[in-house]
Write a protein that binds this DNA or RNA. Structure first.
Lengths: 211, 211
DNA sequence: CAAGGATGTGTGCGCTGTCAACTTAAGGCC
DNA sequence: GGCCTTAAGTTGACAGCGCACACATCCTTG
């Protein structure tokens, strides 16, 4: 492979990598297709050989992010832990990932991607990562640790809480506090509350729960 | 006032109104300052007499939206209802507003506004609308209907759940279902679960809660 | 070794946010 | 009433953007 070849060799992945780099550096809002091409060192229209349009490139990154997120959450589970405890671990891992990769998280869940419904692979990747939580909830229903309600309902509630917190934190609604994971205590407490919503026998929370 | 006057008279508000109209019609992503000016019938730079830049105009809309949202939630409360019931009503009103005004909600909470931390009035408006919920939670702690935990923690948890659900629903993660309020039942159940997280004596949920 | 598809380039269009310089209208002061 | 400051709106321009089109170059396969 001659280094200054006309053909790049692996432009598709190089573009994705460059996009991730620029997103991390300057945020999604500032991301332009031309800047990505510039970063890689190709002409501004070269990306169109590999992605139908800018949106399609973002979709690709979102899919990868969904997969990584699911993997990250799955890896946090422990075989010998109770189901509620595993739900807690899953939520914690989710928040860690979101806060460690705020720009990617915003890209994946935010408005940067247009007409996300039109991309079945993207929706499927989202469902797949949601399935990690859904499986846990179904397991909890069966082993009796969770309420005997609709699994989708309970999983969605948990997901909403975690996603809502991640979004609010990332978008700066909690200013400085919470965004650093040094403040793990608050995140832990919130996740405890979230799981309390669906547990059959809610755990004692802190000292004064009195129930 | 001659009708075809050089000076508009109330251009500032006219621009805000036009912006809301265009947002409702074509979404935030498509909103351009020039289109707003075109809609009002002034030159493309006229808005700069009233707003420092596009971002500042969006901030203004977000502030108004925060205020309306808070007002909407406040109006849903009932003097003779229990605190948990009022929290439920508040969350319900919040979701109604969000789903009825998806584009404005996205604008207010999403990434369209850059550097929101740099606008103290915006942050204050956000805090003010959050205060509606926070007050309820503090009241619930005092009257003993809620857990004796940190009020900020519990209010944040509730807010995260509701905001998370609104975001996911608006961004299409639940596809058709849920987005129509004809499906009130699901929203109601979710809010019940969310309040269960912080209630001292969680209410019976549906038939099979068995506790 | 020729052909042809895949991959990358160059140029250009219409759109955007924003700026500087200009024009117009309105209101206060003598 | 005439003048002058100032707020409000206009004109024209610039750089950057996504994208479409025609063209150049290379690799592969027969």
């Amino acid at each position: 492979m001659n280094s200054a070849s006309y053909h790049h060799g692996n432009l598709r992945q190089a573009l994705l990598d460059a996009a991730l780099l620029l997103i991390r550096q300057r945020g999604i809002e500032q991301l332009s297709l031309r800047a990505i091409a510039r970063e890689v060192g190709v002409s501004q229209t070269a990306p169109y050989r590999h992605f139908a349009d800018k949106n399609r490139l973002l979709v690709e990154i979102a899919i990868q992010t969904f997969n990584e997120l699911a993997q990250h959450c799955q890896a946090a589970l422990q075989a010998d832990a109770s189901t509620p405890e595993n739900i807690r671990l899953c939520g914690l891992a989710y928040l860690h990932f979101a806060i460690a990769n705020p720009e990617r998280y915003k890209l994946t869940f935010g408005q940067s991607i247009e007409h996300r419904q039109d991309y079945p692979e993207l929706m499927a990747a989202g469902m797949d990562s949601f399935a990690v939580l859904l499986d846990l909830v179904e397991q909890g229903i069966q082993d009796g640790s969770l309420l005997a309600l609709d699994a989708q309902l309970m999983a969605n509630t948990c997901w909403s809480t975690i996603h809502g917190f991640a979004s609010l934190a990332i978008d700066g609604f909690y200013q400085r506090q919470c965004l650093t994971l040094s403040n793990d205590q608050l995140i832990n407490n919130m996740i405890d509350l979230a799981t309390r919503a669906i547990c059959r026998q809610p755990p004692d929370l802190m000292k004064n729960t009195d129930q």
